[in-house]
């Protein structure tokens, strides 16, 4: 077995092109996914059975089937129907790039909606009652209390979901896209150095995951900064009545 460093260096710029497409897919479908997930999560957290039902089916389907099936359903499946092929949507649905984004967005929306739902339900009841007590309407409550709090609570778990999405984006290579994995496969078809190129691609994925983890840690420090304040030690002889259980240790 020989290990060829030259091949890695020679094709590394092309791998980085692939990494760029991977990032593009993750960022665009991540944003679309969150935009879809918020209303779905609000519906799932509703107390009405009939509002919960559709989101439940949606989430159950997308979390219970492999991402590969979902991509193939969008990319190959859509072409089965005459109506779609003759509609205005066809120029979009025949492009693997848009199909990948549609499939990834729908997939991540289902997973994030479940995260947001549990975050919404984890908001302390007292805070909701307080919002009620100051006379906020339901939309104001959602905008001022529910969403900001839920985002803060869901953030660490959402960071994991983005890492999973990064890993899932490798499936774009199965519908001919030249993302990081697709690029590595193309280079290997030419050079026949599978171990070297896949390892190099793996290293780039690791760097991307590390960047995403770092980014989310920064957002976490900013968004949940109330958890990270450092207070001076409480004086030992402080009047017990002046103690604040939220600040003093």
């Amino acid at each position: 077995m020989s290990w060829e460093w030259d091949v890695i260096w020679k094709y590394f710029p092309r791998l980085l092109d692939g990494a760029w497409l991977t990032l593009e897919l993750v960022v665009i479908s991540g944003l679309v996914g969150v935009a879809l997930a918020v209303p779905i999560a609000l519906m799932r957290a509703s107390k009405q059975r009939w509002i919960q039902f559709l989101p439940f089916i949606y989430i159950y389907f997308f979390r219970g089937t492999p991402l590969l099936v979902q991509i193939f359903l969008v990319y190959y499946g859509a072409s089965q129907f005459e109506i779609i092929r003759e509609s205005v949507l066809w120029p979009i649905l025949k492009e693997p790039y848009w199909c990948a984004i549609i499939a990834f967005s729908l997939n991540t929306a289902a997973y994030s909606a479940e995260l947001f739902r549990s975050a919404i339900q984890a908001i302390p009841t007292g805070e909701m009652e307080a919002a009620e007590a100051v006379g906020m309407t339901k939309p104001t409550q959602i905008r001022r209390i529910i969403l900001p709090r839920a985002f803060g609570i869901a953030l660490p778990a959402y960071g994991n979901e983005v890492i999973l999405m990064l890993k899932g984006s490798a499936l774009a290579s199965t519908i001919t896209l030249l993302d990081l994995t697709g690029m590595a496969r193309t280079i290997i078809a030419r050079t026949y150095t599978p171990l070297e190129m896949f390892m190099a691609a793996g290293a780039v994925y690791l760097v991307l995951s590390a960047l995403i983890i770092g980014l989310f840690r920064l957002i976490e420090y900013r968004l949940n900064r109330y958890q990270y304040y450092h207070h001076a030690n409480t004086p030992v002889d402080l009047d017990p009545q002046l103690r604040d259980p939220h600040i003093d240790k």
Partner: peptide
């Protein structure tokens, strides 16, 4: 945990 499962399968 940092690399895609697909990449692992292919490798």
């Amino acid at each position: 945990r940092g690399i895609p499962e697909l990449l692992l399968v292919l490798t």
